[in-house]
Simulated scan of single mutants.
Amino acid sequence: MASHIVGYPRMGPKRELKFALESFWDGKSSTEDLEKVATDLRSSIWKQMSEAGIKYIPSNTFSYYDQVLDTTAMLGAVLERYSWTGGEIGLSTYFSMARGNASVPAMEMTKWFDTNYHFIVPELGPSTKFTYASHKAVSEYKEAKAHSVSHKFQALLASSNTFYCITLGGNGELGAPPSLTIRSGVSAPPSTGLDSPPSATDPGENGVGLFLRNAKNTLVFRVDVLEAELISMKKNQA
Results as ranks from 00 to 15, higher is better:
residue 64 Y to D: 13
residue 37 V to Q: 00
residue 74 M to N: 08
residue 74 M to R: 07
residue 19 F to K: 06
residue 84 W to F: 01
residue 65 Y to P: 11
residue 192 T to A: 15
residue 105 P to A: 06
residue 208 V to H: 02
residue 216 K to R: 13
residue 24 F to N: 02
residue 110 T to A: 11
residue 162 T to M: 14
residue 159 S to N: 05
residue 222 R to E: 11
residue 210 L to M: 13
residue 185 G to F: 08
residue 66 D to M: 04
residue 229 E to G: 08
residue 57 I to Q: 01
residue 229 E to F: 11
residue 92 S to N: 14
residue 177 P to T: 08
residue 133 A to R: 06
residue 5 I to H: 10
residue 220 V to I: 13
residue 159 S to T: 12
residue 87 G to M: 08
residue 83 S to G: 07
residue 188 A to H: 05
residue 51 E to K: 13
residue 203 P to N: 01
residue 108 E to G: 03
residue 52 A to Y: 05
residue 195 D to H: 15
residue 18 K to E: 10
residue 115 T to I: 15
residue 16 E to F: 05
residue 35 E to A: 11
residue 179 S to R: 08
residue 163 F to N: 04
residue 81 R to C: 00
residue 31 T to E: 09
residue 57 I to R: 03
residue 171 N to D: 13
residue 3 S to Q: 03
residue 192 T to M: 12
residue 55 K to H: 06
residue 62 F to M: 08
residue 202 D to C: 10
residue 91 L to G: 10
residue 128 T to Y: 01
residue 75 L to R: 03
residue 18 K to H: 08
residue 236 N to A: 15
residue 136 K to T: 09
residue 214 N to R: 03
residue 30 S to N: 09
residue 84 W to H: 00
residue 111 K to M: 12
residue 146 A to C: 08
residue 198 P to G: 08
residue 200 A to R: 13
residue 112 W to C: 10
residue 43 S to P: 09
residue 195 D to S: 14
residue 11 M to K: 13
residue 90 G to I: 10
residue 184 S to K: 09
residue 155 A to T: 08
residue 85 T to G: 05
residue 144 A to K: 00
residue 42 R to M: 02
residue 172 G to N: 02
residue 227 E to D: 04
residue 128 T to D: 00
residue 91 L to D: 04
residue 210 L to T: 11
residue 13 P to Q: 12
residue 155 A to M: 10
residue 234 K to H: 14
residue 158 A to Q: 15
residue 97 M to P: 04
residue 23 S to T: 14
residue 37 V to T: 07
residue 140 E to L: 06
residue 50 S to Y: 05
residue 180 L to P: 04
residue 157 L to W: 15
residue 211 F to D: 05
residue 161 N to R: 14
residue 20 A to H: 01
residue 28 K to W: 07
residue 233 M to T: 05
residue 170 G to C: 04
residue 9 P to I: 08
residue 72 T to L: 12
residue 76 G to E: 04
residue 127 S to K: 05
residue 12 G to K: 02
residue 56 Y to E: 04
residue 92 S to I: 09
residue 26 D to N: 15
residue 82 Y to C: 00
residue 136 K to S: 12
residue 61 T to V: 07
residue 143 E to I: 06
residue 148 S to I: 09
residue 207 G to M: 08
residue 221 F to H: 03
residue 78 V to D: 03
residue 201 T to Y: 12
residue 96 S to W: 02
residue 205 E to V: 15
residue 124 L to W: 01
residue 197 P to V: 10
residue 138 V to C: 01
residue 84 W to E: 01
residue 233 M to K: 09
residue 110 T to F: 14
residue 75 L to I: 02
residue 61 T to I: 07
residue 36 K to N: 11
residue 203 P to D: 03
residue 215 A to R: 15
residue 19 F to R: 08
residue 121 V to F: 06
residue 73 A to P: 00
residue 40 D to K: 04
residue 59 S to G: 09
residue 39 T to E: 14
residue 149 V to C: 12
residue 6 V to N: 11
residue 201 T to W: 12
residue 103 S to H: 03
residue 98 A to G: 10
residue 141 Y to R: 15
residue 46 W to C: 02
residue 5 I to G: 05
residue 209 G to W: 09
residue 201 T to S: 12
residue 208 V to P: 00
residue 209 G to F: 07
residue 91 L to T: 11
residue 102 A to T: 03
residue 177 P to W: 06
residue 32 E to W: 08
residue 232 S to H: 14
residue 75 L to F: 06
residue 113 F to D: 11
residue 78 V to T: 10
residue 161 N to A: 14
residue 3 S to N: 10
